[in-house]
């Protein structure tokens, strides 16, 4: 099957999948034995029937759940994600303002995780049971097993408060004006605007949370690269290549690494999705105004429209990443193209 047809088919599946996600999110939110009224009104206000009635009317909570859901779907089809109860702004506007912060953080983290993880993994596979391998094992074990919350605080204490090497929490210094909005990624936007001062400030704020966030991914990728490489290096065709007298670097890069890439691509795609969806703790410690904190606030305040919006967004991210991963399989593995 030509690759574009494959992609089209996958994209067509997007719509039912996303509708399914909204339905699930809606059912789960409504099954919780709690009431948005208690989550969003003060103690006195929630005891005042008039205020409670006005609140339910404002957010459409006075209608039967099925009707609420249908109204939501109807609005969704016209591109309207509704208004957040907590922030009282359009959910789309909220997502547009919080998502770029998380993308910037997660992308920096995955870039670091992949470069360092693959390099370390390769080294330890090729130098199995040497000091390099042992060191890499310790590093990856540390990355995988250290709670990110603790690591974030310690890193902030050492590199920000004690050494002053990096700027503190937040995306920019207090009161600094963000660069003109193009992508929403401050490092990119400030470069596009040629504003070096803002760029260096944004980069200095970004580096520490990104490294902390990358710790788990780096450890994971190191381990996967190592085991996958070892498996491939033990295969017959590698022995054949060696017997042929092929140069070592050619064996590693052209033959072994390429074959080891398949599980690696899966892990990288999956990790990137997780980084985008799972930054809550890092964002809290680093006061990073991203989607994680928004999702957390939405769920603790039973902010249905925001919960639905975030669920849709995260589902969309995972679906797209999976699609990209599958397409990459085609690129890396010629056998798939044949079927």
């Amino acid at each position: 099957m030509p690759i574009y047809r494959y992609i089209l088919r996958r994209l067509a599946l997007l719509i039912p999948l996303l509708i399914g996600v909204t339905l699930l999110a809606f059912i789960i939110s409504n099954a919780v034995p709690a009431d948005p009224v208690t989550a969003n009104l003060g103690q006195k206000a929630m005891s005042d029937p008039k205020i409670v009635a006005a609140f339910r009317a404002e957010w459409g909570l006075d209608r039967p759940p099925a009707e609420q859901y249908l109204v939501y779907l109807q609005n969704l089809l016209s591109g309207d994600l509704g208004r957040s109860i907590k922030s009282r702004r359009a959910v789309a506007e909220d997502l547009a303002s919080y998502l770029p912060a998380t993308i910037e953080l997660a992308t920096t983290a995955i870039l670091f995780g992949v470069t360092v993880g693959v390099a370390l993994g390769l080294l330890s596979a090729l130098r199995r049971n040497t000091w390099i391998d042992h060191t890499a094992r310790v590093i990856s074990l540390f990355g995988v097993s250290t709670p990110v919350f603790w690591l974030a605080l310690v890193a902030l204490y050492i590199f920000y408060a004690r050494l002053g090497w990096v700027a503190g929490p937040g995306r920019l210094d207090a009161g600094m004006t963000p660069p003109p909005h193009v992508t929403g990624l401050y490092t990119v936007d400030s470069l596009l605007a040629g504003d070096w001062r803002t760029f260096s400030n944004a980069a200095s704020h970004l580096i520490l949370p990104a490294l902390v966030l990358a710790s788990y991914t780096t450890g994971l990728i190191t381990r996967v690269t190592r085991s996958s490489m070892l498996e491939v290096l033990g295969m017959d065709f590698i022995r054949t290549a060696r017997a042929k007298g092929l140069a070592d670097n050619k064996i590693v890069v052209r033959h072994a690494l390429r074959n080891a890439l398949i599980p690696l691509i899966t892990v990288i795609g999956f990790s990137y999705g997780n980084l985008l969806a799972g930054t809550v703790l890092t964002e809290a410690i680093f006061a990073w105004p991203g989607i994680g904190q928004y999702a957390y606030r939405a769920s603790t305040s039973l902010d249905f429209p925001a919960i639905m919006g975030v669920s849709l967004l995260i589902a969309l991210i995972f679906i797209l990443i999976n699609l990209i991963v599958d397409v990459l399989y085609f690129v890396v593995d010629p056998r798939l193209r044949a079927t």
Binding site: V116, A119, L123, I132, V166, N201, S204, I207, D248
Partner: peptide, 27 residues
């Protein structure tokens, strides 16, 4: 050759990640 290159690359990356911060830090 490829190994020492890779080792060097990894070390450079680690060093970069540790030292990149102070350089751009305007604050």
């Amino acid at each position: 050759t490829p190994l020492s290159t890779l080792a060097l690359l990894a070390i450079v990356l680690l060093l970069f990640s540790a030292c990149a911060a102070p350089a751009p830090s305007a604050a």
